[in-house]
Design a protein around this nucleic acid. Sequence first.
DNA 1: GTCTATATCTTGATAGAC
DNA 2: GTCTATCAAGATATAGAC
Lengths: 189, 189
Amino acid sequence: MDTRERLIESTRELLRERGYVGTSPKAIQARAGAGQGSMYHHFDGKPALALAALDRNAAELRDRAERTLDGRGGVVARIGAYLRRERDALAGCPVGRLAQDPDVVADPALRAPVEETFTWLTGRLTALLDEGRENGELDGALDPAATAAALVAVVQGGYVLARATESAEVYARAVDGMLALLDRARLKG
Amino acid sequence: MDTRERLIESTRELLRERGYVGTSPKAIQARAGAGQGSMYHHFDGKPALALAALDRNAAELRDRAERTLDGRGGVVARIGAYLRRERDALAGCPVGRLAQDPDVVADPALRAPVEETFTWLTGRLTALLDEGRENGELDGALDPAATAAALVAVVQGGYVLARATESAEVYARAVDGMLALLDRARLKG
DNA sequence: GTCTATATCTTGATAGAC
DNA sequence: GTCTATCAAGATATAGAC
């Protein structure tokens, strides 16, 4: 892995662990094993490097979600697989984590990938729930957009609760509670 | 309001807006209209002042939740009132906001009020859902602890989505989706 | 109690040698 | 491309006058 690549990967880790405000160029360089000069040769500055790292975090989140949600099986089963997918709940969401950062929210270029990721994910879940209504798996009275928003929120809130209590279990419990409720909207046989 | 009080109130605002890492003593002093000397006379330093402010945020959250959840009406109605209560979703949760802060999570004294608040709130909702099962309002198959965790997570995740998209509407949509699902666990007649 | 230096470290970035 | 100064500004805190 070349220096430029190590800088991006180190920044991805630090953004997830400490957020944007809590991550200094010095810390990035130390983790990447690169000097000041290297970093400023490859990137304009902290915002540019953070953007490169954040874009990669967003792309990875989307790819993983796509693979799980496009899979085989019923709509509820696929959503369940996505919510229960192995994740490091204590580390926080590599994208949602940044939504709390004042300097990210204040910079349109940095906020864009965060907003786009959630807009896409919510839209994908909405389409999936709608598909379930069409094919008779789900009750037609279910509101796809509102349910999709609740699903994404449970995941993000699960990360928050996990960090607050330093327990990954709480994430799993919240997701289980949500999926049990969603299961009630399934039409029987 | 005396100087000590103004320092605490300014810190409360800044913690919510910018988090712990993003809030400097200088910014606190400027907002409170107090000098360096004043702040360090009343408090040992930034962590001590932040703890005083966070304790107050946690107490206020708990008081408000208690008032809504102890009210009249059915269990689902009271939970609905709490989730839909007027809040500044774009400002973020005055307590949950701090769960994402690396320096808060790393300091047991600062993390304590955050953890205690969520443990209490989840417990209160669990008891309420259990009450609903006992009195026949809710399906006995509902898991109170998991459902309570999901409810708290939806609120926290709603804050995250609202900030990510700079839209308070998303918070309302997530909460609506969750409450519609919970409504299906109510026993008819 | 509050104010104004003062001090030390870190941040974020630039300059220029190699 | 990478390194080592160097820099101005801010973060966090202390000292001492009033």
